[in-house]
Amino acid sequence: MYFIITALAAIVTTVFCYNMQDKHRLSILCFIYWGATLMWLVDHVLAFFIEGGELFEMTLDAALLGCLVVLSGFFVWGIILFLKNIKRSHLKTE
């Protein structure tokens, strides 16, 4: 479930990034979500073929983890944006 939620977040962010022409450096958020999506894709597919069982874990726990992951990605992007703005304003004043 967390894989599906992160993949959806990656798609939505990419669409926004494309439409807003990378305003607010949305591409960084895209890369964060896509990186995790690609890694989980490999993890899920390999685990499915090697260990068997379900391809996607559809539980409340997995859904909560998905939400936490998406929010954390958003939080990290916010911090990066904040730091970059501080750096830019600092360079401008110099």
């Binding site: 960084i28 990186g35 992951v69 990290v76």
Partner: peptide, 20 residues
């Protein structure tokens, strides 16, 4: 920097999942 962002983003979110 694209590869860097992809890798660090993935690593960070995967680490969260592992902590969970």
């Amino acid at each position: 920097s694209w590869l860097n962002n992809l890798l660090w983003g993935g690593v960070f979110l995967l680490a969260l999942e592992h902590i969970w």
